[in-house]
Design a protein around this nucleic acid. Structure first.
Lengths: 108, 108
DNA sequence: TATTTATATAACAATTACGTTATGTAAAGA
DNA sequence: TCTTTACATAACGTAATTGTTATATAAATA
């Protein structure tokens, strides 16, 4: 139903993928550029890139035989909105605890 | 290396868990309250709650035999910061670039 | 055309994730 | 004390994730 949001959060849960995003914040990079700087194989990088792209967080161009990736920051907007809403909620702990205890008392 | 951020994003990737968070934004709820409104078993809910708590997104109180959960919005702050900075990145906006590149490092 | 280069895909193993049902535990109430 | 209530935990099946190595594909180059 909200699959893109699922995919975006799942993509962001992997530290290697977050590192790739930070790398792409420096500018476009192709697979080889990225793979050189990570301790995992090129196929593993290719798969991480696919995950990031399917989540809408990056996009791919085609220049000759290389496929430069770049950040697609708008892909994070929905996830950002979810977190902003959550963070805007602040439980007044004391009050809520009182409220809970009161409701327990009432139902006795 | 930033395991809490991994856990937070992974927790947020599941739609059932996001629904639980939205439920908790309306106020504290215990396991039974939540399980009633979801099409999965109580043990499954208990596990989702454990995942959310280990990610720092909710916390648990003890009142008699029930364990009311409540939102812990500050648990989402680091994730929110990562996304906000990524979303503020634009290929020609180098003023934001440095901030984004250092985001995980800084919030350690 | 044949070779090299850049990247993707396939096949596989190990681990983790998410659901189920069955059962354990601790507090509440008769 | 005995039962019920609220929740956690265990055991298990299945599917997804993440890495590996081997191989396929398509563009660049000799």
């Amino acid at each position: 139903m909200n699959e893109l949001l699922d995919l975006a959060f799942a993509a962001l849960a992997d530290p290697t993928r977050r590192a790739i995003l930070r790398r792409l914040a420096k500018g476009e990079a192709n697979v080889g550029d990225i793979a050189e700087n990570f301790p995992i194989s090129q196929p593993a990088i290719s798969r991480h890139l696919k995950v990031l792209e399917e989540a809408g967080l990056i996009e791919t161009a085609r220049v000759g035989q290389s496929r430069p990736r770049r950040l697609r920051p708008e892909g994070a907007e929905q996830a950002q909105r979810f977190l902003a809403e959550m963070a805007s909620y602040w439980p007044d702990r004391f009050d809520r605890l009182e409220q809970f205890l009161d409701s327990e008392k009432d139902s006795k």
